[in-house]
Amino acid sequence: MNALLEHPAVQAGIAPFVVALIVALASGRARIGWIGIVAGYLAAILLTTGLAFVPLTASRKVLLLMLAAPAVGLLVDRWRAPAARIDSMSGPLVLLSLLAAVAAPWVLASVLAQREGAQMVLPAAGVALFAAVAVALTLRLRADGIATAAAGIGLGAGVGVAALLSASTGYFTSGVALAAASGALMVAQFVTGRMVPAGALGALPIGLGAALFAAATLMLAQLPWHALPALLLVPLAAGLPVARTASTRMRAALLTLLCLAASAAPMLAAWFATQAAAS
């Protein structure tokens, strides 16, 4: 049993998928099932590094924010109904994007503090802007559970594989766990044939998680900076008006394929960076 739980495929993929699926199915058609995103991510963390917050390193700040994200999302959902217009970005959603812009430099403060001048300011501003845009683009999808889950699959796969190519198995595991958990939420909707809006409860952990995994891999490993804007193609693809009148199952299949295709952009950015470094 231990050997099974120590296998990377189980830690990053199977366990997060199973945990998220159980949470999603157990909640029936209720939106609370979207808490499965963080439950799946948490399963991967428990099977790899375990829960620890002292000292509060950058990676542990990411974990802390991921655990807090569903609670913040629930609060926002109570404030602003998740089934609002898909492009609605007013009020609390703008606030969440601004909070993400603050959170990303805070996560990386220990690294940024060792730098001076432009070497500190440019990465701090860059990750702040990236996190804000990633969260905003993902939150725009919150009324559409299919689009949100597809974005989660693409974002997780994109950042995960790019992290692996950039010398970080830790963020590979986190990214793949995010993709697997989002996949479980997609399967739950596919099986029942009914779309369940993600709300900020589901969309915030997906957008924030992918943004922080990418920003941390940029600063703590070797992810090239241009992989970050490339990753934003995924939530943009998920928001495309594709087959809006088609069945839930058809939309699930189409949007998943579209987001996986978009996730190739950050993967290729990371891959070409490794090739450039070799020459």
Binding site: A58, S59, A167, S168, G170, Y171, L220, Q222, T274, A278
Partner: peptide, 21 residues
């Protein structure tokens, strides 16, 4: 070489010695 990263690059990253932080 032809691999994405060398072992030493991986050891310097966040998974092991986390040299940036």
């Amino acid at each position: 070489g032809n691999r994405p990263r060398s072992r030493d690059e991986h050891l310097r990253a966040a998974d092991f010695f986390n040299a940036a932080e």
